[in-house]
Design a protein around this nucleic acid. Sequence first.
DNA 1: TAGATATTTAGAATAATATCTAAATGATTG
DNA 2: CAATCATTTAGATATTATTCTAAATATCTA
Lengths: 88, 88
Amino acid sequence: MGFQESFKALSDPTRRQIIQLLKKEKMTAGEIVNHFQMTGASISHHLSILKNAGLVIDDKQGKYIYYELNLSVVEEIMSWLASLKEEK
Amino acid sequence: MGFQESFKALSDPTRRQIIQLLKKEKMTAGEIVNHFQMTGASISHHLSILKNAGLVIDDKQGKYIYYELNLSVVEEIMSWLASLKEEK
DNA sequence: TAGATATTTAGAATAATATCTAAATGATTG
DNA sequence: CAATCATTTAGATATTATTCTAAATATCTA
């Protein structure tokens, strides 16, 4: 996990939409899939990229896997961006 | 120019390094090239992606083209990220 | 103006990414 | 325990990205 993975993860529109969904509430993979016109396999792939970047956390509860936003990584990215403005 | 282009631009390590260089001072394309082990053509390509994303601005002065950071786009990205934390 | 310098553009090769279908895994339930 | 449900993994294909070399463009200078 580093900026490489984070920015790559955020560079895809489907993944940004997933993040926007998770901003409101945690969701299972299936609920997320229902918001898109894409196969579950594709969304699963996107979720694994988001997870690998640390942007989401998964929480397996029996049959379901809940996904939720991990804001600490969001804050790390913001810090990197903020550092571009400071200390010229 | 949108988040698509911005995040894609930031997802490449060479382009992030270029941004870090430009954080300190504006530079000509040639000066930027000197910081990398890559052809001028490749760096030029990266610069065009950064420019297309609005992250840098170019300023042609005779023989040289100066590149400089455009912080307003950096701030837009930060706002998008900040909105993930607010208004749950 | 001819040659040199700075930078970009074109075209090609290779690698990475997104998406699909089909199959596998793991958990629940009748 | 067999069938079903939720999700992921594997393998294939098409698109996009990165990088290179070679050539083009634009500007400066001797």
